[in-house]
Amino acid sequence: MNRPDEPGEPNRDRPADPGLPMVRIRSVRKRFGAVEVLKGISLDVPAGEVVCVVGPSGSGKSTLLRCVNRLETPDSGRIWVDGELMGHAERGGRLHELRPAELSRQRRGIGMVFQRFHLFPHRTALENVMEGPVTVLGTPAARARRAAAELLERVGLADRAGHYPAQLSGGQQQRVAIARSLAMRPKLMLFDEPTSALDPELVQEVLAVMRDLAASGMTMMVVTHEMGFAREVGDQLVFIDDGRIVERGHPREVLDAPRHERLRAFLGQVG
């Protein structure tokens, strides 16, 4: 796993500070209109760890993930990824909003997997995986194709390279989406309910890929309702309710002995 060209390995511009968490979230607030969706979230994700975020629907989990890669802009608070402040540069004691190009550069290093896959329907599985490197990084097509084929193999879809998304099952589409993110060699992967849109029998094939990824040392933030996965793979479990982190800790401890009534109620519903 330590070959420098291994697809999916972090592509670091500079060596990460070993003491620094990969993600540092401080007092993030976000409101949509009159509703405050995030009410001051602070959270660290150490490099190489998997943080599982759980909570009832509408509690702000997706919004939190989307603030990390700046698909949403927080109203207040700060987020650093790999030591770099997201969305702003600090110069002369003042914050300067980043230009779109700099924001795009920051996003490159952060992979995101969506509940509804969002594969590009007009491109084959292989082309979907090549798209990032070729368009964003300017990788020559031949090299991107080789790397993409390798990634598809890694998610178990080598034989589906030429298929269009519409010809793939939901589980296969989600695995292609994971490969597409990995092609950018991210240092952080965000998963927003990656198995919630899948038929039950297809959930495990996606979780297996995510388990492998975690084992390879990828830093991951995973919003999920799969408590088995959280228990087995997670290093940290965070329960969000109504825009606040209500409970956090090691998944087994939190799940086996939930302290808050609301978490107990939530776990009762999820099963």
Binding site: L71, R107, R108, M112, R116, G132
Partner: peptide, 16 residues
Amino acid sequence: PGQREAAESLGMSHRQ
């Protein structure tokens, strides 16, 4: 709109 978000999260510029 998810298509745009997926592309943006790969680091594509608006034009791309």
